[in-house]
């Protein structure tokens, strides 16, 4: 086989979290590439890419492949897939990592299909085993189980990773790396899906499903009036408010905030959970949030066991204390 040992990271730069996940993937990709003596290569497609190219070199890319053209200004599933797949066939990277953003998920799934290879979604860990295979750890069943997966007989090994999973490397703008500016290939098929309108949403208007921070209240919040304090906390964190079923039934908040099997499926980066017991019908909807802070009077509540940090406290008092502390820290 003539496959290289290179690790590719797709350069998703559309807004804050998309850009961060690319940098986070470069950090982990670098470890993987070094472990098998390959190159870490960032592949970026779009328009006006210089600043992203510089960013990727500063964050550890050994090489950047950049396809910069005015016709590529808007993200387009069919076109970007063709470009990525053609490049991969030509250069044969061992691994392709893509951020698990909305577009990244689409692009990775399409590319894996065209390349006829495996793709593991939402990996929470990536490492190489002693045979040099990429071992991908991914959650299933609402984050209740983790599976280790390898792609032993197909090429390339592909994975998506959610923002916040890995830590980015400190930047070094003195760093140098070769950058290849590639021409738009001839004979590209026109995109069949036309983008008519695109508006950037203010973070607060974003749907619960796509919110990076979710503040969730359960029966333990105590009353409708106290539940309202969560709205203030969510506002300070730039997040959204969610609720469990008893809260919705008691009309402390609107029905659309229900999270779980009967409600919405969320995938926040950070989940704050107040007075929630952690029934599976509820936790089935919270994905495998990378960071969970739970507040409960009962340290043995399942929600506390699922959390990274558990505050054993009154839910409402903890909410008020968090609001005060955040106001201090966000003042500057």
């Amino acid at each position: 086989m003539t496959n290289s040992r290179d690790v590719w990271v797709f350069g998703d730069y559309r807004n804050y979290f998309q850009n961060r996940v690319t940098l986070q993937l470069l950090a982990r990709g670098r470890e993987l590439a070094q472990a098998q003596e390959g190159e870490l290569c960032a592949v970026v497609i779009g328009h006006d890419l210089q600043q992203w190219v510089d960013e990727y070199v500063a964050h550890g890319a050994d090489r950047v492949l950049a396809l910069d053209h005015p016709s590529l200004t808007a993200y387009q599933g069919e076109t970007y897939t063709s470009l990525l797949v053609d490049l991969a066939r030509e250069r044969k990277p061992a691994v392709i990592l893509v951020g698990a953003t909305s577009f990244g998920r689409e692009l990775a799934a399409r590319a894996a299909k065209r390349l006829g290879t495996g793709l593991t979604a939402d990996c929470v860990d990536l490492r190489l085993d002693d045979q040099g295979r990429l071992v991908q750890t991914a959650p299933g069943f609402g984050g209740n189980l983790l599976a280790e997966i390898v792609i032993p007989r197909h090429w390339p090994q592909m994975a998506t990773v959610r923002p916040g999973t890995f830590q980015e490397l400190p930047h070094d703008y003195e760093r140098q790396a070769p950058v290849e500016w590639l021409p738009l290939p001839a004979g590209l098929k026109p995109e069949r899906v036309r983008l008519v309108k695109s508006e950037r949403l203010a973070p607060r208007e974003q749907a619960l499903e796509t919110a990076g921070v979710v503040v969730c209240g359960g029966r333990g919040m105590g009353s409708k009036k106290k539940f309202r304090n969560l709205v203030e906390l969510a506002r300070l964190l730039g997040g959204q408010v969610a609720a469990t079923r008893p809260v919705v039934y008691a009309r402390w908040c609107e029905e659309g905030a229900l999270v779980g099997q009967a409600g919405r499926q969320i995938k926040p980066q950070v989940l704050f959970s107040f007075g929630v017991s952690g029934a599976i019908q509820h936790t089935a909807g919270i994905g495998g949030a990378p960071f969970i802070v739970a507040v409960n009077k009962n340290p043995g509540a399942v929600m506390m066991q699922m959390a990274d940090v558990g505050l054993v406290a009154d839910a409402n008092q903890a909410c008020l204390a968090l609001i005060r502390e955040l106001k201090k820290r966000l003042r500057s």
Binding site: R14, N15, F17, Q18, T101, S102, F103, V193, R194, L195, V196, K197, S198, E199, R200, L201, P203, Q206, A207, E209, T210
Partner: peptide, 10 residues
């Protein structure tokens, strides 16, 4: 809604 953009497609 795609990555924080509200998109209309045809």
């Amino acid at each position: 809604v795609y990555d924080g953009f509200l998109e209309t497609l045809e």
